[in-house]
Amino acid sequence: MARGRLRVYLGAAPGVGKTYDMLAEGQRRAERGTDVVIGFMEDYGRPLTRKMAEGLPTVPRKNMPYRGTAFTEMDLDAVLARRPQVALVDELAHTNVPGSRNDKRWRDIEELLEAGTDVITTVNIQHLESLNDVVEQITGVRQRETVPDEVVRRADQIELVDMSAEALRRRMAHGNIYPPDKIEAALSHFFRPGNLSALREIAMLWVADRVEEALLRYRGQHGIQKPWATRERVLVALSGGPESDTLIRRGKRTASRGAGGELLAVHVRRDDGLATGNANLLAHHRALVESLGGSFHTMAGDDPAEAVLAFARKINATQIVIGATRRSRLKNLLGRGTGEAIIEGSGDDIDVYVVTHDEAAHGRLLRRHRVQSQSTDDTP
């Protein structure tokens, strides 16, 4: 039996309409003759959401007593026995009442998918596990219910349900999200304009990363080597020398010029294990890259230029930042350096930026001084 397909409506914030959109999609599929049922739906008393559910068959919930209180949960066994083509299951990050077969609703959904049922579900961006800390810093509210990012990333389809901060606050003020007694507190706390704008940006960036992952998989599956410039991805090639600080900061400025730009740094060590850079400096460079929001990578290779170019194409880099050469004129005459090889091998699909730095300038001045000193010594 083929595994079911998962579609996730990802809300940028509570109240943007993800449950409504889930139900609307269910209605569209039902009109086309698909067997659609509501496995679990939470309308929070919202009239428009409740109306959108009309006409769709619903599997009755299961009563779950806990500590003297009655709760209701999705009746997983009943939905599995019903064997619908599509099940609508709200609130992916929900924690089930103790005593349920699974502790989390996303595990219930996994059973439905394994049984061959397509599932359409919902989750808000603040419930993704990796974003728990940053959401708390922004909103002051720690989300107790989370779902692993990988569960959402594995979805066959993710649709971002978005709304401007102003429009969402108007919906709140008109009573379309929370009951009247909770509106004022919500508007002055979680639903402040700055909070909503930040959550919206986080949601768009998270979805962009997920799309980028799918793009990289597609390129790999189809043997596409040429990068596709969906957004700026700047790769800084580090030799391990003291000039690397300058290159990292220049790379960060370049990446920041475009929306969603990404900074990466790579250091190539020799295949034979011999050191190619000062270990303390490399640790410092890693810390600097990560403090600027980038990622630091090391790899082995006999030919640094080939290794950098291979890595750049693997990650779909749009630009490579390298430092001006510190090689002597004699060495340049004997053969090309790593920088020249990267430039020659980059082709027309990756831009290479050569950044001047104090170390290169110092090397040129030192060589000039040596030449002048030798001329003076040879003077009779």
Rank of each mutant, 00 (worst) to 15 (best):
A2T: 09
G4N: 04
L10V: 06
G11P: 02
G17I: 07
D21A: 11
D21L: 14
Q27K: 14
E31R: 15
R32M: 13
D35Q: 08
G39H: 07
F40H: 14
G45A: 04
G45H: 03
L48Q: 11
M52D: 01
M52A: 15
E54I: 02
L56V: 08
L56A: 05
L56F: 05
P60L: 00
M64N: 02
A70D: 08
T72I: 04
D75N: 11
D75E: 01
A78N: 08
A78D: 10
V79W: 05
A81D: 13
Q85W: 00
L88E: 01
D90Y: 06
A93G: 05
P98E: 00
G99M: 05
R105V: 09
R107P: 00
D108L: 11
I109G: 01
I109C: 02
E110A: 15
L112F: 09
V119N: 06
T122I: 04
I125L: 02
D133P: 00
V134E: 15
E136K: 14
I138V: 15
T139S: 15
R142D: 09
R144D: 09
D149I: 12
R153V: 10
Q157F: 07
V161N: 03
V161P: 03
M163N: 03
S164A: 13
E166R: 09
L168Q: 13
R170T: 13
R170E: 13
R171M: 10
R171S: 11
M172N: 06
A173M: 09
N176L: 14
N176P: 00
Y178Q: 06
P179I: 11
I183W: 05
L187P: 12
F190E: 15
R192N: 00
N195T: 15
N195G: 10
N195Y: 09
R200I: 02
E201R: 14
A203E: 00
A208F: 03
E213R: 14
L216H: 01
R217M: 11
R217E: 14
G220C: 03
G223M: 04
L235A: 08
L235S: 04
L238V: 08
L238D: 07
G240N: 06
E243V: 01
E243L: 06
T246R: 12
T246Q: 15
L247W: 03
K252V: 08
A255K: 01
A255G: 05
L263W: 08
L264W: 13
V266G: 02
R270A: 13
L274Q: 13
N280L: 07
R286P: 07
G294V: 11
F296N: 08
T298D: 04
T298K: 00
D302G: 15
F311V: 01
K314E: 14
I315G: 00
N316G: 08
Q319T: 15
K331C: 01
L333I: 02
L333D: 01
R336H: 11
A341Q: 15
A341P: 01
G347K: 04
D348V: 00
D348N: 10
V352N: 00
V355T: 10
V355C: 10
T356A: 11
L366R: 10
R367E: 15
T376C: 03
T379G: 03
